[in-house]
Amino acid sequence: MNRYVRLLGVVSLAALAVGMVEARELRLASGAPPAHPASDPLYNSFAEFLPEETNGELTGLMIGPEVVNIGTVKQALQSSLAEVGNLLPLFVPADLPNTALMGDLSFLATTPHAMGAAMTEYVVTCGECQAEFKTMGGVFVGAGSSDVYVLLTTKPVNSLADMKGLRLRSGGAPYARWAEKLGAAPAQVPVSDQFEAVSQGVLDGTMASISDLISYRLIDVAKYIIDVPLGTYHTTSNFTVATTAWSELTPEQREGFARAANKSSALFTQSWGYDRAASARQAAVDAGIQVIPASQDLLDATNEFRFSDIPDAVALAESQLGVTDAADKIARFQTLVDKWTAITAATEGDVDAIAAAVQTEVWDKVDWSTYGL
């Protein structure tokens, strides 16, 4: 009897060992510091959901920002240093022009959850977007959104005149165009470098999520929050999978990967777009940072920019990036924003319900034997 029990134990251990060998560990790069929502909850929750949604067949190994930061995700994916990465299309518009084009609607944003869902559906169903990801060597598996951006500065902005010459960090083309239109001087600085640039006086501030006060320690250098609504940062590719790694997964594993990514993206938007923004604002007040409401002339100039910039964005996309029918693509995205604004409003902020809606409306319609290949 004891011999039989021992034999069963050996067989069980052997089976377990085989299962462990067969499990595929993917190298994951959020590109963000631990305090940023792209790290937690986005990638931390994904590392938990991934084995759950793939019956333990896929797991993740986190790579820190000291190895792969947000500005080097594309290179890390192409070199296979990372197999899954948080890629920002506005950082690589020449590679992903049709995808980055949607960033030009930042200033027309509604709510964060609606923008993240609309971006997800747009890219999944955009043939040219899919083609450019394939050419770059990656697969798009979902987007998310920030809160509505504001100005975080070391100088007060009490009127439109105070914008003149203000040196501001820009996270993408639409923000740079807004700053230039209003007389400021935008600079394309990686988000991970904005603390140093502001602390050393190279920049007077940044156009950013208010949660950057905590995520990137700007609370130690910023003196003012200028409450001018600058739209959301929703042109993301939260989980960009290197094509080589994606091709090695079974259709069932890809489907499970997407379920895990979808759940994590909803949590990410809830955190970045709502929860952390509220906490950061309170922390700023407690730290003595002054909140300055946008002056009427600053609001008027920003509102005028929201609509007048679209023709310029279309012209630039077509002439400089080779995007065709840009106006039609923007109109389609606006339709999706309206669709998802209604859907997310009906959920009354229930994150699980929002994730379920995206799963039903987008991911359940994907053919996993061909998607991304």
Rank of each mutant, 00 (worst) to 15 (best):
E361A: 14
T99C: 07
G231V: 07
A355W: 08
W246I: 15
A266F: 07
L77R: 00
S145Y: 01
L168F: 05
D147E: 14
Y149I: 07
A100N: 03
Y274S: 07
V92A: 10
A185V: 03
Y216M: 09
G349A: 12
T59E: 05
S30A: 14
A35I: 00
A161P: 05
P89A: 02
M207T: 12
A278S: 08
A280V: 00
D204V: 04
E128P: 02
L298Y: 09
S271N: 08
Y4T: 14
A294M: 13
N44I: 13
R24A: 15
L298G: 06
D40K: 13
T235C: 14
L249P: 01
G183D: 01
T154Q: 10
K74E: 03
L58F: 09
A315L: 13
G288Q: 12
P186D: 05
V84G: 00
I330H: 08
A294R: 11
D212S: 09
M62K: 12
R27W: 13
L77E: 06
Q78R: 01
E252C: 07
V67F: 00
A179W: 06
S39W: 13
G71L: 01
I210N: 09
D364A: 11
A278T: 05
T335V: 11
P186A: 04
W363R: 08
L87Q: 01
E83L: 08
T236C: 05
V21A: 15
D364V: 15
L160A: 10
M62R: 14
L90A: 06
V191R: 00
L321W: 12
W272G: 09
T347W: 11
P37L: 06
T54R: 04
S265T: 13
G71W: 00
V157W: 07
I214V: 08
A278I: 00
P229R: 01
L316T: 09
M136S: 04
L101Q: 06
E128I: 02
V362I: 12
T72M: 01
A331V: 03
A315G: 10
H36N: 14
A315R: 13
V5D: 15
R306W: 15
G349T: 03
G322W: 04
T99A: 09
T153K: 12
L213W: 00
Y371S: 14
T72H: 01
L105H: 04
V202N: 06
A283Q: 10
L316I: 12
A100T: 00
D212Q: 06
S199P: 02
F46Q: 06
N86M: 03
W368Q: 13
L203T: 00
V202S: 08
I289Y: 14
S80R: 00
D352Q: 13
S319G: 05
M119H: 08
S264A: 15
G127V: 02
Q270L: 11
A15Q: 09
A15H: 05
A38G: 10
E318M: 09
T250G: 06
M1N: 11
V228L: 07
S146N: 04
A315C: 07
L81M: 11
I226G: 06
V291P: 02
V18I: 15
L298C: 09
P37H: 07
A313F: 12
T344I: 04
Y371A: 14
S106R: 03
L7I: 14
A261K: 10
G205E: 07
H234K: 01
M1E: 15
G372Y: 02
M115D: 08
